[in-house]
């Protein structure tokens, strides 16, 4: 080879090639491949500002985004048996668990928190998809029961934000039994007369969808989330056809009558606040104060308005300081 190809070309390449960017500063949108500055990403609640793609959120970010001022208390979940089947495939399940715990910093795939949304006390159970695909084993079932118990004790609504591939195979039949188990948890909340709202996020499939995640009094889906029972590949193998465009996406479910609404992430908190307010405070505020207030205003949080996740826009809500009916 000559001087040109050995020396000059690499030099030019080095000059032209995109410089290595620090990983923590720039993120690439998995949908449109555009680069997003980390601060913009945080500000946009991990929604791509270029294409609107909703990235998966870990439970800490999810809880911070939903509660007033990002403040909440997590509850320690009851201990569940670890590796009840002594399961091993190519790896031991206990090792997979340890890895997932190290990676996520969580004991299992669910976090349960208590806090306020626009002043209303609310229990939120959020899934961690990084933890073995958010899969549901005994510990997750335990988390759902604990969340329900807390909601009933605090007389607070329960909001569940699943992100899960379904049942956790490594716990065999016991993971399947978490389906009736979590259904009972939901039943306890409903029997206490408390609202149970599900926020379906990407992805929610399998045994999770086929149990507590489809039983909400109100079903909200985040934009573009994959939601379904069977996996797309399983369906393709069964019907031997390619699947329709947008199959099992939030918008598709809305179209087929399976969810109440599809929301952009920035509208999620306002929507929850509004719905919970309507379900919790059912009589005119006028009954509490002596004189009807003509300026009484129910916060309008339409999806068109770019109401931010901060509670400032609803600070003047008369309901927030209202005593329990």
């Amino acid at each position: 080879m000559n001087w040109l190809s050995n020396y000059v070309r690499p030099k030019i390449r080095a000059l032209v090639a995109p410089r290595e960017v620090p990983e923590n500063l720039w993120h690439k949108c998995p949908s449109c491949d555009q680069m997003i500055f980390h601060r913009d990403l945080e500000e946009n609640l991990h929604v791509c500002q270029h294409c609107g793609f909703h990235m998966r959120l870990d439970p800490l970010k999810r809880l911070a985004m939903l509660f007033d001022d990002g403040k909440y208390e997590t509850i320690e979940l009851p201990k569940a048996p670890i590796d009840p089947l002594k399961f091993r495939d190519q790896k031991r399940y206990v090792d997979r668990l340890k890895e997932a715990q190290a990676k996520s910093g969580n004991a299992d795939a669910i976090m349960v928190a208590f806090g306020r949304m626009n002043g209303m006390e609310v229990v939120i159970a959020a899934f961690d998809f990084r933890f073995m695909g958010g899969s549901m084993g005994v510990a997750v079932g335990e988390g759902m029961l604990a969340a329900a118990k807390l909601a009933v004790l605090q007389d607070a609504p329960l909001v569940v934000v699943p992100a899960s591939g379904g049942a956790r195979m490594q716990e065999g039949i016991l993971s399947l039994m978490q389906m009736p188990r979590t259904v009972i948890a939901v039943e306890q909340v409903k029997e206490a007369g408390l609202p149970y709202i599900v926020v379906l996020t990407d992805p929610t499939t399998g045994g999770v969808t086929a149990s507590f995640a489809m039983l909400g009094d109100i079903q909200i889906a985040e934009k573009g989330a994959q939601i379904g029972f069977a996996g797309a590949r399983v369906i393709e193998d069964t019907i031997r056809e390619t699947l329709p465009e947008g199959f099992q996406r939030s918008e598709y479910l809305l179209e087929h009558g399976m969810v109440d609404m599809v929301v952009h992430r920035k509208d999620l908190r306002p929507a929850l606040v509004r719905l919970l307010g309507l379900l919790r405070y059912r009589t005119p505020a006028a009954e509490v104060v002596s004189l009807p207030n003509p300026d009484h205003e129910i916060p309008k949080l339409g999806f068109e308005t770019a109401a931010g996740p901060t509670p400032t826009s609803t600070a003047g809500d008369p309901h927030s300081s209202r005593p329990e009916p």
Partner: peptide, 22 residues
């Protein structure tokens, strides 16, 4: 596992069935 079954809410139907059993 089929397209029609998903469209008509396979997951919801199973969830409600468990609920009814309980």
């Amino acid at each position: 596992p089929g397209v029609g079954a998903e469209q008509r809410g396979q997951a919801e139907a199973i969830a409600r069935c468990i609920e009814t059993c309980l």
